[in-house]
Amino acid sequence: MLSLKNSLAVLKKTDALLEGHFVLSSGLHSPQYVQCAKLLSKPNQSKKFISSLASKIKKNVKSFDIILSPAMGGVIIGYEIGRILKKETIFCERVDKKFKLRRGFYIKKKAKVLIVEDVITTGKSSMECVKLINKFGGRFVGIACLIDRSKKSSISKKIISQVKLDIPVYKRNKLPTSLKNIKITKPGSRYLR
């Protein structure tokens, strides 16, 4: 498995760990952002990262039938984890602001489902995936992600991550002076106002 030090080195080498003033999809502000798309754009660098996460999943999740990833960020990671662990992999997409299964994807009743994401901050996307799993009568068994930057929450005990980062987040009206003077960037595929 890839150590924390080596994982951080890969993130920096691929320009995936960014510094600045970012508004996350949750609406929270942060001085750092992990752009997993940059990591994944370098397959030779990301291979060890993803393989290490797959090993952690194998060690910590006794059994599961299918992987569900939220589009857009989790699609490649879910596919790669599924390929390594030889599991079917599907993804959900936002339709009218809610996750739905499209493209003929479905979850069999009582199927054990592992959610695979790129980055978890608030856990909102993961919890939306859990609702979708429940809607189909599946059984949620856990969450895996490349980067866990969540704080203590109801889902944090269920998260298996390659890297746990403690990056501060702030509400717009509680920004530190250091962020107030930096131009805002809104990365990611979803932005909530």
Results as ranks from 00 to 15, higher is better:
F105T: 00
D118T: 04
M127W: 00
G104Q: 00
K12T: 10
I143H: 00
S161Q: 04
R149D: 05
K131T: 11
A144C: 10
K58M: 09
G82D: 04
R94D: 01
K151Q: 12
K108L: 13
K186W: 07
G137T: 00
C145G: 03
K180F: 02
I50C: 07
K110P: 00
P43I: 09
P187Y: 07
I81D: 04
D15R: 14
I77H: 07
I182P: 02
S126C: 02
G74F: 05
I167E: 07
A9T: 15
V141N: 07
D166R: 12
I57S: 07
S150R: 05
G20T: 08
S125Y: 03
K100S: 13
Q35N: 12
K151F: 10
V61M: 06
P70E: 04
V130C: 04
R193Q: 14
K12H: 09
P31D: 12
C129K: 01
K12I: 08
I160S: 10
E80M: 14
L40A: 08
S150P: 00
E88V: 11
A37F: 06
I120M: 06
R172T: 13
G82W: 06
V116S: 06
P176C: 10
F64G: 08
N44P: 04
G82P: 10
N134L: 09
L146H: 01
A111V: 02
K112E: 10
I167C: 06
M1L: 14
Y106G: 10
V61G: 01
L101A: 05
K100D: 04
S69K: 11
R139K: 15
K97L: 12
N134H: 11
Q32M: 15
K151N: 14
C92A: 14
L192F: 13
F99N: 05
I182T: 11
S25G: 13
R193T: 13
K157Y: 11
G73S: 09
I90Q: 04
K164E: 07
R172Q: 15
